[in-house]
Amino acid sequence: MESRITELEIKLALSEDHLEELNRTIFRQQQQIDLLQAQIRELYQLMQPTDPTEPRNLRDEIPPHY
């Protein structure tokens, strides 16, 4: 009986360690997602025209190989 309790305690300790490692991984991934979303928002704002009423010049959109 004593060995079974010891074995269960070991399994519980290992499970707690794995759970803590998973929590740290998820936290790091969420930080990365937040950073990427902020970068995408910044890029989106940079791509927006400064004056939305100003007509677009199609010549600016011609690829350089033409």
Rank of each mutant, 00 (worst) to 15 (best):
E21L: 13
M47G: 01
E9R: 06
D51P: 00
L19Q: 07
Q32S: 15
L43H: 08
P63Q: 09
M47H: 04
A13K: 10
L22Q: 11
L35H: 07
I26R: 04
I26W: 10
Q48L: 14
R41P: 00
N23F: 12
E21T: 07
Q31A: 12
Q29M: 08
N23C: 15
E20K: 14
T53Y: 15
Q37K: 04
R59I: 15
A13L: 08
H65K: 12
T53S: 10
P52S: 05
L14V: 02
E61M: 01
L36G: 01
L46P: 00
P55M: 06
E54F: 04
L43V: 09
T53P: 00
E20Q: 06
E21G: 07
T25N: 09
Q37L: 08
L12Y: 07
L36W: 12
E61N: 01
Y44R: 10
Q45I: 10
F27G: 02
T25G: 02
F27Y: 12
Y44W: 13
I33A: 01
M47Q: 09
D34K: 12
R56F: 04
E9L: 11
Y66P: 00
N57T: 05
D60N: 11
L46T: 04
R24Y: 08
S15W: 13
I40T: 03
L35D: 07
Q39L: 08
E54H: 14
D34T: 05
E7A: 11
D17F: 09
N57E: 04
L46H: 10
R56K: 03
Y66W: 15
L12F: 08
Q29Y: 14
Q45G: 14
K11D: 02
L12T: 05
T6L: 07
A13D: 04
A13I: 11
E42T: 05
E20T: 05
T50N: 03
R28T: 03
L35W: 09
I10H: 08
E61I: 01
E54P: 00
H18D: 01
L46Q: 06
R41V: 08
D51G: 01
Q39D: 15
L22E: 06
E21H: 15
R56T: 04
L35T: 05
E54A: 08
L14H: 02
L14R: 02
R24V: 03
R59L: 13
R56Y: 05
Q32C: 15
I33P: 00
E54K: 13
L46M: 05
L12S: 03
E2R: 10
N57P: 00
L8H: 03
R24A: 11
I62M: 07
M47S: 14
A13F: 10
Q39G: 10
I10A: 12
E54M: 12
E61W: 00
E42F: 07
F27L: 03
Q45C: 05
L46K: 03
D34Q: 12
